[in-house]
Simulated assay, not measured.
Amino acid sequence: MKISVREVLSLMIGLGGVALLASGIYHLLDVGTCGTGGPHVIARECPQGSGIWGVLLPIGLFLWFIGLFVSKQGLVKPGAGQIVWSALFAGGGFALLYLVLTQPDLGPGAELAAYIMAAVFLPLGVGIWIPSLLKLRRKPPGGPEAQTTEATVAGDRTAWMQQLHRLLGDEALTRAEFDRLARDPAGSGGRVALIQQLADLRASGLLSAEEFTAKKHTVLLGDSGRAAG
């Protein structure tokens, strides 16, 4: 399957936005609840530089939207758009659960926030693929390629039988020879073609009736090389 430039750009921009979002959320959860400035007493001051991580959230979200927009398939069909969508929601949900389970010393309020976000993110990330999986399950066993092959085989057999009937009508084959060849379509294709060539040579006067009959019998016996000579 050929991947278009738009799909590549969608992945690069969208996944880049997801990376920025993930970095921002991770550091904000690590900080937990805090405050800064104002006339009131602050129970917990935010660490220096915390504002930078907050800025990453809108930037990453913007790039993520751009990635979805660039994708040719969008969210309708499987492609870069659905991958970018799942990277944010499904990937983010699993990452949040992993963070909570492996780092029990998260900042105040961060653990509850991580559980809530994971409960929202995971269904959104996985649900986008459900329609595609249902369509795949309902797809008939023979796809377009298989149907095309079957149609080609059926068409070849029809043309081959028509050629056999022409040879019978031109008295190039006896009824017994016709029945013999018709019983073995797979093994008789080359012989029918050679007999047709011999019949054409007979019709043009290059072969006599006796020569045609002798060479035809050779073909029917399987020695096509000798018949052609």
Rank of each mutant, 00 (worst) to 15 (best):
P140I: 10
W129P: 08
E211F: 07
F89C: 01
E211A: 12
I25C: 05
E45T: 12
L15R: 03
L75C: 03
S86P: 13
A113D: 00
I25D: 09
S132C: 04
L75G: 09
V120S: 01
T218S: 01
S224A: 14
K139A: 15
G60K: 02
I59E: 03
S208D: 15
F212V: 10
G107K: 05
L124G: 00
T33E: 14
L11H: 01
S132V: 04
W160M: 01
P144H: 04
P141Y: 11
I13P: 03
W85K: 07
M1F: 14
G143D: 15
L181R: 00
L57A: 01
P78Y: 11
R202G: 04
S50H: 11
V31C: 00
G38Q: 06
G142L: 06
W64R: 06
D156H: 11
G187D: 12
A227W: 06
Q73V: 15
C34Q: 07
L75E: 11
M161T: 11
Q82T: 03
E145L: 13
A159K: 12
G81M: 14
P39F: 06
M1D: 11
A146E: 13
G67Q: 15
A95N: 04
S188M: 12
K139T: 03
G51H: 06
Q197V: 12
A113Q: 05
I59P: 13
A80W: 12
W64G: 03
L28V: 11
F94I: 08
T174W: 13
I52E: 05
I116S: 01
F178S: 05
Q197N: 04
K72L: 14
Q196P: 07
Q197D: 13
Q147V: 13
G155F: 14
P39V: 03
L96W: 13
L21V: 15
H27W: 15
